[in-house]
Computed example of a mutant assay.
Amino acid sequence: MYQVIGTRASRAFRVLWLLEEMGQPYEHVAVAPRSKEALEANPSGKIPALRDGDEVLTDSTAIMTYLADKHGQFTHPAGTIARARQDALTHQILDDVDAVLWTAARHSFILPEEHRVPQVKEPLKWEYARNLERLSAGLQGRSFLMGDEMLVPDILLAHCLLWAGKAGFPEPDAVLAEYVARLTGREAFARAAALP
């Protein structure tokens, strides 16, 4: 059985949601970054971490990719053009959305106060809104980012859009708002959201 280390109020939520979608059994260890359990799994103390037997994996996207490949769900097969496009989209979301949100978080409460630059948040909000325009354009006429099938990048983007809303970033347009509502209306999402 898998063990997911990290509170659901973190990027661990992505892993928990994917496992719920897959119907895979897991144990959830709801701990904060740099807790004893987090440090035992990852010397940096960052979460999430995934235990699979004696192996420990870190980084939410790496964990999701591993699980999707291992179980043949929520992904295109490795070595295909479709997978290369999926990976490109995953990296686009990480670069254009996740990294922008993480930079804002670092300058809000993560970095020591003397190293924060609060003024950076306004340009980041502008960049975020601009980057969402391309993702929204690509979603036109589709149920999910790559067509009719929900994949790892969908969980990644939906989680980022929820994070952005809590962080006071611009609201998504109607296309992305409907997309997030559709994804968060899934039973697996509700089960993950109900975890401690």
Rank of each mutant, 00 (worst) to 15 (best):
A158T: 15
L161R: 06
A104P: 03
G165A: 15
V29A: 06
A181H: 07
K125A: 07
V15R: 10
G6Y: 00
S136I: 11
L124R: 05
V15S: 12
D173E: 07
Y179M: 00
T184L: 08
E21M: 02
L132M: 11
A129E: 15
F144S: 00
A192V: 07
L67Q: 08
K36V: 12
L19Q: 07
T184Y: 08
K36R: 08
D96T: 05
F13Y: 06
Q119M: 11
Q92H: 08
R14D: 11
A12T: 01
E40V: 06
G168F: 09
I5M: 06
E127R: 14
M150D: 00
E55T: 06
I110A: 10
Y179T: 00
T75E: 03
E133F: 09
E133L: 13
D96A: 10
V4K: 01
A105R: 07
I81M: 05
L18Y: 10
L94H: 12
A78M: 12
R85A: 10
A167C: 14
R182P: 03
Y26I: 03
A104C: 00
V31L: 10
W126V: 13
L94N: 13
P153N: 05
D69E: 14
F144H: 00
D148A: 01
A192M: 09
M146Y: 01
T65K: 12
F13N: 03
G53A: 05
E21W: 04
G6T: 07
H76W: 05
L124I: 01
L132P: 03
L132T: 10
T65Y: 09
T75D: 04
I81D: 00
I47G: 14
V100G: 03
H71M: 04
Q86H: 08
A190E: 14
E114P: 04
Q92D: 10
S108H: 04
I5E: 05
K166D: 14
E21D: 09
Q92G: 08
L162E: 15
L89T: 05
V4F: 02
R182Y: 03
Y179C: 03
R191N: 13
L132V: 02
L19S: 06
A78K: 13
T58V: 14
E127Q: 14
T65V: 12
K121Y: 06
S136V: 13
H91N: 14
R116L: 04
D87G: 08
E122I: 11
L94V: 15
C160T: 12
L89H: 08
R130A: 15
H107Y: 06
E133W: 13
N42F: 10
A49W: 06
